[in-house]
Every structure is written in C-alpha cells, then in structure tokens.
Design a protein around this nucleic acid. Structure first.
Lengths: 215, 215
DNA sequence: CCTACCGATCGGTAGG
DNA sequence: CCTACCGATCGGTAGG
C-alpha cells in the first residue's frame, strides 16, 4: 500500500525532473535517439531507477504531446472567448498560439516531430486533436467571411496556412531575433492581413510607414 | 575492377528502388523507426543485400535531405530570376516552394523532421542550407520594402513566417483538399497579402468577392 | 535507488 | 543476392 510501484500518477518532484530531462533530450536527439540511460544520467541516476517513477519510455512521450495539444486547444478557446469581434478573435487566437510556441518550444517541436513515434491509441488521439484544432481555426475564419469581415479564397486552406505559420515559431533554428511581445504582435498582424481583414482600419492604427504605391 | 563494392555512386535502377522504398518508410515510421530489413522486404530482398548498393543507412537519409534542400534553393533562384518585379518574384518564389512541397511531400517531411537524425558533417551542411534559404527570402522582402512595394514590420520575421507557412503544405495530415494549382495560387496570393503588396492592385484582378467593409 | 542481467533488436560484415 | 553471424545497443525486469 505504501509503495507506489508505478509512480506515474504520483506527480512527485522527481517525476517532474525526469519529465523535464526527457523533454530536453527528446527535443535535442529525438525520441528514438534518446536512451533511458541518457535521461537517468542527467539526474545522476541509473536507467532502471527511472522505472520507480514511470512505466515506460513511451508514456513520457505521449504525456508531453497530449498535454501540449490540450493546452493549445484550451488557449485557443480562451482567446476566442475573450471577445466577440471576429477580427479580434483571430488576432488573439494567433497571439495565443505564437506565445505558446515561443514559451514551450521544446514541447512544440516534440509534438510536431514525434507523432510517428507514438504508439496506438495515443497516436490517433493526437491526430484527432490536431484535426480538431484545424477545424476550429477554419470555422473561425468561415464566420469572419460570413460576417463580411474576412475575404479569403478558402477558409480551410487559410486556416491551415495560419496554423503552420504559427507553429513555425517553435521550429526556429536558433532563438528568435526579436522579443516575445514583438513576435506575438507581428504574427497577430500578419494573421489579419492573410484573411484580408486589415483593410477595415487600413491607414489608421498602423505602425507608421506610409506604404506608397510606386509601381 | 568489375565489381562495384560500394555501389553508392552508381545510380542503378536497383539503387533508385531502394531509395524510393527508404523514402516511403522514413516518412511513415521515421528514420530510427525504419530497419534496413524493412527496406529490403519491400523489394523482396534481405537486408545484407542492400549493402551492394549503398554504404550505410545514414547515407540514404543524408542524400534525400541534402538533395531536397538543393532543389529548393535552385527552384527559388529560378523563380526569382524569371522576372524583375519584386512582387512577382515573391509570388513565384512562394509558388515554387508550395509546388515542390506538394509534389515531394515525403522528402519534405523527412527533411523537416529528421535533421536531428543526421550525423555530422551533413547535419551542419543541412542547417546551413536552411539558413541560406531563410536569408534569401529575407533579402527578397527587404528589397521589396526598399522599393516601396512591401510594407512589413520585420523582413526577417516575415520571411520566416512565409517559409514556414509554405512548408506546412507538405505536413498535411491527409492529402490537401484542393488541387495543386489551386494550392499554389492561393499561397502566392497569401504571400502578397502578408508583405502588404496586394494594395497596389486591390480591387482589380482579384478573384471576385466584393469585400465590403461592414464593421 | 542500485547491480546484475535478460531478451530482443539492429546495422553491418564475412564469405560465398 | 544469400545465409550465418557478430558486436553493440537498449528497454525493461528481478531482486534486493
């Protein structure tokens, strides 16, 4: 009773350390390129001792990926729920994503590169969550079009383009050359341009730059 | 003399088949998730026989990734060199990328996911090529800004956003819901919007849609 | 949390 | 192009 044989549901400090080391290594070397011994060494342990805190290497991966996607979906819902103006919803959704990718670069990269390393049924769960996220974006853009606020060739294609563009922030080779707030703001603006929403307030609150039409 | 011990530079039909099978499997299961035996089985062979046509598994990977990046750089140069109008250069560069990603989805996904599986010095070579591609895009956008044709907050950030957006085409979970030509055209248009170049010919050759400003 | 160790996998070689 | 096989790696277990 006292011994937690599989301590995977007990979120001890040690579990968190193991998880963090695993995230570091999965990001740097990939899932299959990381050995349990590598993770253990980072914490001054031996590989078998890890199994007092988890039940398998695969569990480490699936937890990271699924939590990442759940966070993305949550933050997207919050961003959209924080206002009723569809342009502002889109801007905030993009800002939320970019902020998340900037702050959780390691988890984002793992989630985007290691889907194929997931075993079933987690793999399917993750693919479904990704599909759901894409649909949420597409519906948001569709609504903007219906309200006459956006003008796009294809809401689905546009949703996909915006999503992929934002994920890119996490894929930066070297750290971004700008501050997080600048990153977030710029991508929010780009999103509005992509959906053709910027014309509403064109030469108004724009960040200066006269933008002449020299042919 | 007659026996090609390491037939890696001899581009035989068999080599091409092996390469194609490897690309399929690296894409589906990842580099580390693919065994030489898997590749051989696809061709009705046994794993050791593969070594009559290549020298290592790693060689298969690096060739795919490096060739992919070389093609991207070439096609980008060709697109930019095919006209002098900076807006048109940007559009064609985006179209070339999207077309490439659409046609070489497998290679594109491998190149983007398996950089970490590359050993040195190929890994560095690939990272350098990626950096070069990013710089090429950034310079193109900078020139557009200098000519007063584009208006962006940061050429570098914008270049990165556009690059990542286009790569996304290859990352589609399921095949794209539209034709290749539609895909290519839509992304070209989006690129022009992102750099703020569409205003020049705003309600002109646009694909209909009145775009009212009901706000 | 450790040592000892197993069972399986896998890239690659030997030698034909 | 094959069989036989090596050497190394690695996730996980036993048992303390």
């Amino acid at each position: 009773m006292a011994k937690a044989k599989t301590g995977n549901n007990v979120r001890s400090a040690r579990s968190a350390e193991i998880r963090d080391a695993a995230i570091d290594l999965f990001d740097e070397r990939g899932y299959h390129g990381t050995r349990m011994e590598d993770i253990a060494t980072r914490l001054g342990m031996r590989a078998p001792s890890l199994y007092n805190h988890l039940s398998s290497k695969q569990e480490l991966l699936s937890e990271v990926v699924i939590e990442h996607l759940r966070a993305l979906l949550d933050e997207h819902a919050m961003a959209v729920g924080s206002t009723t103006d569809v342009s502002e919803q889109l801007r905030r959704a993009m800002e939320a994503h970019v902020r998340h990718y900037a702050r959780f670069g390691r988890e984002s990269r793992i989630a985007n590169r290691e889907v194929q390393s997931l075993e079933e049924p987690d793999r399917t769960t993750v693919l479904d969550m990704r599909t759901e996220l894409g649909l949420t974006w597409a519906r948001l853009i569709e609504r903007g079009v219906e309200e006459g606020r956006f003008e796009v060739a294809s809401p689905q294609l546009t949703a996909y383009a915006l999503l992929k563009m934002s994920v890119g922030v996490a894929m930066w080779l070297r750290p971004p050359p700008v501050s997080e707030s600048e990153l977030v703001y710029t991508f929010g603006e780009i999103a509005l341009r992509v959906v053709g929403a910027d014309r509403e307030r064109a030469p108004a609150a724009a960040p200066a730059v006269a933008a002449p039409a020299a042919g």
